[in-house]
Design a binder for these strands. Structure first.
Lengths: 151, 151
DNA sequence: TATTGTTATACTCTATAACTATA
DNA sequence: TATAGTTATAGAGTATAACAATA
């Protein structure tokens, strides 16, 4: 039959219904941004969630595991495996909690602080890159509207 | 020490840096909307991606697997396991492709059409519910801005 | 009795390599 | 040689149950 089998195809796909759904669009947007994140953060061997954990420890020295779980929507058994390699890489250090013998207070090590200074700078650059199609005010609006959805 | 260990805690967590990132907010928003989706679509035994597949087959009768993969960002090996139960439940039917002997043309069965009429109506209701904090124009703006991010 | 943190485990989602049949 | 679809498999991500230590 030898039709050219063009790529992209001559018959466009109708995605209008899906594209009318906030959930669908938010997921596609998140995946697009996270893909860039993965590529650039690979240099630091950080995944999105690892980065989020380190960022919260940086800005909240002494934070506990259960506080991290609440803030990030992670279940406690899953946080264990996230923290373990970060401690092993000496980015995070676990100290006894001052008021609660059950808990551990998490702190960045100096290695962790050095890495996160670079990683957060990279994240901020990526942010501009990922939203290159948006004006400054559009970007601000988008952030506000997304927060309203999950608040 | 007997501090009340309040829930939520008395010391709020500083999440300002993460909340400045589009990727973080888009992911949180997507997860919030998808959680509601999961709950309400459980009645139809549909997951978000299964729903997306059925919706594209409904609006693009005769669509092929590779077109579905391209449109939804799914890898071909993973689509196989998605389609199998939909065929087994007799929601989708696979016909020979009219012009390409390698491909299969996908169509909804009458069972599939009946299910998707209800499921798409439910999705549209959910949409209003999930964006109850947004005005009509805010919702339109959010959709446009999300599309700009992943376009 | 309730909470923090942990182990073990299972299920889903996503990714890669290799194969077949058709083009 | 390239593409459509498939199998097998491995790795993340996410979920529940059950436990020890401490509150």
């Amino acid at each position: 039959m030898a039709e050219p089998t063009n790529n992209p195809p001559a018959e466009p796909i109708d995605t209008r219904f899906l594209e009318s759904l906030i959930g669908y669009n938010a997921r596609r947007a998140a995946l697009a941004v996270i893909e860039q994140f993965l590529q650039h953060m690979a240099a630091y061997e950080l995944r999105p969630v690892s980065f989020s954990v380190l960022s919260l420890v940086k800005h909240n020295p002494g934070i506990t595991s259960s506080q991290l779980c609440t803030a990030l929507g992670i279940l406690p058994p899953n946080l264990v495996g996230l923290l373990k390699p970060l401690v092993k890489r000496a980015l995070i250090e676990r100290r006894p909690h001052p008021h609660d013998g059950r808990a551990m207070a998490l702190h960045l090590t100096s290695t962790g602080r050095t890495l996160m200074a670079k990683a957060e700078a990279t994240a901020a650059e990526l942010e501009l890159q990922a939203t290159a199609n948006l004006s400054k005010s559009e970007r601000t609006t988008l952030l506000q509207l997304l927060k309203k959805v999950y608040a």
